[in-house]
């Protein structure tokens, strides 16, 4: 396994995001794959368990650290402002984490019932791609996806890895209700709706898994960095549980 610093040749810079957060911005010659570095760095910042770090948010090419100024150890005599103290600590952790090994991603299998009632747009998507419905679904289920980041709505995974030939336009007019668990495609991306919400993605299937359940000990099924596979199931095996 490579160390984090070898994943891609990357560098970072720190900058304030308002007066109680800072952003670690990652850069490399090729932008692809930086999200893996962001996920790994977010994990080392979280696992440092510093009580003044309120939140750590990995994104495509950055990690945002929200901090609690009042809890930062600051030497007022040194004239440092809280941001400088936080930045110095973050530098220290990032330097150390360059040497740590990149974690082997968890692989999460997501059962999906393709087409029919659960995937009302599968037929149209397959037609646009010039494929049979079954072939389209099989192609979608044969790829391995990675969770680049989570955002937009609670538990919504931004997935990389959609085979390019499966790309689809957004719906001309969004649905007012997309059921929770719906698996969709928009542009070159595929995703899963964790909650029932309005939405404009083409729906090709649905999972009975709940991506977000506040009652579970682990409320979220996915986190940034995970690898993900879609496993086709039959409509009669679709039972809502997790």
């Amino acid at each position: 396994m490579n160390s984090v610093s070898e994943l891609v040749g990357w560098t970072y810079s720190l900058a304030p995001l308002g007066d109680r957060a800072l952003v670690v911005t990652l850069e490399s010659k090729s932008e692809s794959g930086l999200w893996q570095v962001a996920a790994a760095l977010a994990e080392s910042l979280r696992s440092a368990r510093l009580h003044w770090i309120a939140d750590v948010v990995p994104a495509y090419a950055s990690v945002t650290v929200v901090y609690d100024m009042a809890r930062l150890p600051i030497h007022e005599t040194a004239g440092a402002i809280p941001y400088e103290a936080a930045a110095a600590e973050v530098h220290r952790i990032l330097k150390r984490s360059r040497e740590t090994e990149a974690a082997i991603p968890r692989v999460v299998d997501i059962p999906v019932c393709y087409g029919g009632l659960y995937g009302p747009d599968l037929a149209a998507c397959a037609a646009r791609a010039g494929m049979e419905e079954a072939a389209f679904a099989e192609r979608h289920a044969s790829a391995i996806y990675r969770v680049a980041m989570i955002g937009f709505m609670p538990g919504f995974p931004y997935l990389t890895g959609l085979p390019p030939e499966l790309g689809q336009p957004r719906l001309a007019s969004p649905r007012s209700v997309v059921p929770a668990g719906s698996v969709g495609i928009a542009g070159g991306q595929t995703g899963i709706y964790p909650l029932s919400t309005p939405g404009g993605w083409q729906l090709i299937g649905r999972t009975p898994f709940r991506l977000f359940d506040p009652e579970r000990s682990e409320p979220f099924l996915l986190r940034a960095g995970d690898a993900l596979r879609f496993v086709p199931i039959r409509a009669e095996d679709f039972t809502c549980e997790s």
């Binding site: 990995p58 709505m153 919504f156």
Partner: peptide, 11 residues
Amino acid sequence: RAGWRAFGIPE
């Protein structure tokens, strides 16, 4: 609820 932003949950 700070601490859940990485999962898309606002503070």
